[in-house]
C-alpha cells in the first residue's frame, strides 16, 4: 500500500546573509505498509519520526528538501497527488489536543474534516455517525477543545482521521502521557482500523505500546530504519532480532535485562560517515564507516547492517 524508499529530509536554515546550516533528521529511510496491518515506527522522542508522516502527506515546511521516493498503491507520490490524497485517502492522527483549533467548536472541526475528505453532501451525517462510533456524546459537538478530557480528545482526533474513507492512517505519537486505560483504548482503535483493511502506521517512542498492536516493527535510529521485523521476533532474548541496535534496545527494556546502551544518538546536524550506528556499535569494523549499509532482507526481517546474519 505504502512504500517509502530511501527517504532523506534535509533542512536548510539560512541565518543572516549566506550563513546556513544543514540538518538531516531523516536519512535513507525505508518502510513498507500493507493494507490490514499495523506497522509501528519506534524510536526515541524528538528524533524526527514525525517528519516521516509529514513527508508522506506532503506537509513539510518549505525549507525542507526531500530525496527518495514515496509510492502509494503503485503510484509515485508527487506534491500534486499528495495534495489530492491528504485527508481523502491518507489521514493523520496527531499527538494532542493542541492540534485542534482552540477557537472552533469540536463538532465543526470534525464536520470540516468530513467535508475535506470529500463527503460534501453527507458530511453532517458522517460526523454524527463517527461521534456515535467513538462514543462521543452529542453535546461534545458544541464544546471547545480545551473542554475535552484526555480520552475524549483522543477519540475526537481519531474520529477526525476516520470520518472520511482514508485507507492509510498515520498515527503520530498518539499515546503521549495518557492514562493507561486511554492508551489501551487508542491502541484498540488502531487495531480495529487495521482489521477493517486499512493500513496503519503507528509512530511512537513507546515500544511496549507498539508490541501490543503492531504486526511489524520498524526501529528508527538517527533518522533511518535500522531494522524492520515482525512483532514475533521481539521475544525471548531477542534471537530473532538481527541489528545490534535493535538487540540493544530489546535488552534495555525493564522486563528484560534492563541494560542501557552507552552513548547518544548522533545529532542530525553532524551525522557520521557510513553506518549511523557504527560509533556505538560493538561489532563495528572499518568497513562500517566506509559506506552507509543498505537494507537487506534476511529471513522475515529487513536489516541495515553488513554484519547481520540469519
Amino acid at each position: 500500500m505504502l512504500e517509502v524508499r530511501s527517504l532523506s529530509i534535509h533542512f536548510h536554515r539560512y541565518a543572516r546573509g549566506l550563513r546556513r546550516t544543514v540538518l538531516t533528521p531523516v536519512v535513507d529511510l525505508d518502510l513498507k505498509v500493507s493494507a490490514g496491518e499495523v506497522v509501528a515506527v519506534v524510536g526515541s522522542s524528538g528524533s524526527g519520526k514525525s517528519l516521516l508522516a509529514h513527508a508522506v502527506l506532503g506537509i513539510l515546511p518549505s525549507n525542507a528538501h526531500i530525496e527518495g521516493e514515496i509510492w502509494y498503491k503503485g503510484q509515485l507520490l508527487t506534491p500534486e497527488r499528495q495534495a489530492a490524497m491528504r485527508g481523502r485517502r491518507i489521514a493523520l492522527i496527531p499527538q494532542s489536543v493542541s492540534f485542534l483549533d482552540p477557537l472552533m467548536r469540536v463538532g465543526a472541526q470534525v464536520l470540516r474534516a468530513a467535508q475535506l475528505s470529500g463527503k460534501n453532501r453527507h458530511s453532517a451525517a458522517a460526523q454524527r455517525a463517527i461521534f456515535q462510533r467513538y462514543q462521543l456524546p452529542l453535546e461534545v459537538e458544541r464544546w471547545y477543545p480545551f473542554q475535552l478530557s484526555g480520552g475524549m480528545a483522543r477519540r475526537t482526533l481519531v474520529s477526525m482521521a476516520v470520518v472520511g474513507e482514508a485507507e492509510l492512517i498515520l498515527a503520530d505519537e498518539p499515546t503521549p502521557g495518557l492514562h493507561p486505560e486511554v492508551v489501551q483504548e487508542t491502541l484498540n482503535h488502531l487495531r480495529q482500523l487495521a482489521d477493517e483493511q486499512r493500513g496503519v502506521v503507528l509512530i511512537t517512542h513507546d515500544i511496549q505500546a507498539a508490541l501490543q498492536v503492531a504486526d511489524q516493527i520498524a526501529v528508527f535510529y538517527a533518522g533511518t530504519t535500522v531494522e524492520i521485523a515482525p512483532v514475533t521476533a521481539f521475544s525471548g532474548k531477542g534471537e530473532g532480532l538481527l541489528h545490534p541496535y535493535t538487540q540493544a534496545l530489546w535488552r534495555s527494556l525493564p522486563q528484560n535485562e534492563f541494560i542501557p546502551l552507552p552513548g547518544m544518538q548522533p545529532s542530525p546536524q553532524d551525522l557520521p560517515q557510513g553506518c549511523l550506528f557504527a560509533p556505538r556499535c560493538p561489532l563495528a569494523t572499518a568497513e562500517c564507516t566506509a559506506e552507509r549499509p543498505t537494507m537487506r532482507a534476511i529471513a522475515q526481517n529487513q536489516v541495515r547492517c553488513i554484519h547481520a546474519q540469519g
Binding site: 509529514h54 502527506l57 506537509i59 495534495a83 491528504r86 485527508g87 481523502r88 489521514a91 493523520l92 496527531p94 499527538q95 494532542s96 493542541s98 492540534f99 485542534l100 483549533d101 482552540p102 470540516r112 474534516a113 475535506l116 475528505s117 477526525m160
Partner: peptide, 17 residues
C-alpha cells in the same frame, strides 16, 4: 506555524481554507 494549522493541512485544507 501552529500545530492546528499543520493538522488542518493534513486534512487537505489549502491556504485559503
Amino acid at each position: 506555524n501552529s500545530d492546528y494549522i499543520l493538522f488542518a493541512r493534513a486534512q487537505g485544507e489549502n491556504l485559503f481554507g
